[in-house]
Each structure stands twice: as C-alpha cells, then as structure tokens.
Amino acid sequence: MPASVSSTRNPFSDAATPAVGVTIDDLCKSFGTFEVLKHVSFHVPPGEIFVLMGPSGSGKSVLLKHIVGLELPTSGKVTVDGLDAADETTREKVRMALVFQAGALFNSLSVYDNLALYPREHQLADEAGIREKVMRALQILSLENAANKFPSELSGGMKKRVAIARALVMEPQLMLYDEPTSELDPVMSATIAEIIATLKEQYHVTSIVVSHDRDLALGIADRVGILMGGQLRFLGKPAELRTPQDSRVADFLNPQIDLQNPRFKQLETQA
C-alpha cells in the first residue's frame, strides 16, 4: 500500500478504515490526593509517530492507560478518533494495541497462543490463516524458536518482543508502546524502530511511543513530547530537541556526569 493512502486495513472486513487521531484535552489524574497528571493537552493527528519522553515516575504509563480506557480521567477528556476513550464501546470501534511496560503476557498460554488469542477470539481467520500471521510476527521479532515456550521461560527482552509481536498480530489502527526498546540490544532496538516506521509508511498506523531512547526519538518521531512531573514541558519536532529552551528539559536530555559533585551528594548537603 503506498504511503499516500491515509487508511489502515481492517482485518475484520479487509476494508480500509480511516487512520485515527488522539486528542488529550486538559487531562488531570489523581490517585487519592496524589496528582499524577496536571492539565496535559496535546493532539496526535492520524498517522503520526509521537514519542513521549520524561523522567521515571512522571506519569507516562498512566497517560497511555487513559488512551486505552484502563484509567479514567479525574478531569479532562481523552478522545480517540473523536470517541471518548473512557467509553467501553470505543474499544469495539477502534482497534488499539498497547504494549505494556511489563509485557502483560498471558502466563498460562504459550507464546504462540498468546499471539493467536486475539485473532481466534475475534474470528479473524481460520486456524491456518492465524498460524501464518502468528509465525510471521514471530519471525519479524526473531522469536520463531520461542513459539512453544511459556512466558516464565523467557528472558526480559524476549517477553518484550513477544508483547510487541502480540500487538502486531492485532493489526491495530492505533499502536501504543510503553518503553518498547528498554530491555533490548541495539540491533533489536533498531528493528523495533523500523517496524514502527514501516507501520506508519505502509499502513498509516498512528503510534504513540513512550521511550527514553533518544536515537529512537530523533530517528523516527514526527513530534516529541516531554512529560515532567505530570506536565507537558516540551512539545515539538525532534530537531528542536537539540536546542531546548527549558533548562530542565536540557538537563534531562543531556545530563552531565559530574564526578566531582555527584547528584546524590548534592541531595545530602541540601538536607
């Protein structure tokens, strides 16, 4: 499919469905009295690769969960393709896949059955067709030999790859990745980046990628957002990241390792 076609293929009907956009509108989320997200707003147009960066604990995973409707906003709204993400029926209308930070593989199913569950449950193909899809996804992520293993028998990086393969089999319109490359070697990370870019070029899949990987952000992102302390501190083209205005963003992106005056010692003297 040429890049100019702005639609994704729907495996249910094989019909082309329009690519979907995501809008986060003044989103606030608190757990008890603890505010995790504070008035976050941005829009990801259909077919864009949006990379979300930010320090650990800044609320990136919580934000992704709002997009698939696993967390409900305290205030504000998240819409996917114009539909309220908090509404259960949105998941029926838009195919979304989330690659969980911890994988969230089904521990009682083999790798093969983990991948095959979605097409089987949604009756997308017969068993032979499913086998072909699943084996292709496993091949892309160099997992052919792991098909009959169980999640408990896999290494951390393999689990991550299985989680990505499982999301690929879903042929989603919207892909959400929570740190897809954090446990992978450089070559596998490059493969993941290529997959994300190819899904965009060929199928116009919208992707939101949470990652600490600057190469990934600079290499494939259309736009980058930086979330710090629950607020969006930066939103722009990857090229603008080289010369950030905000000093905290600059420090986050290019931390200097200071052996004379290490950060943890600074904390001690402050206290």
Partner: peptide, 25 residues
C-alpha cells in the same frame, strides 16, 4: 487465585485492551 494473579500482573488489562471481555472467556 488465578484471576487475582491475572489482574495483578495486568493480564486482565491486556484482555480488556484487546476487546476480549474477561466475563466472556
């Protein structure tokens, strides 16, 4: 025990995002 561990290890969340209702399977 089985369903609680599926919940705690986010398997239930994964099912929900895959639009496979846990009540069904």
């Amino acid at each position: 025990a089985e369903l609680a561990s599926m919940k705690v290890y986010q398997e239930i969340d994964a099912l929900v995002t895959m639009n496979i209702p846990p009540a069904r399977i």
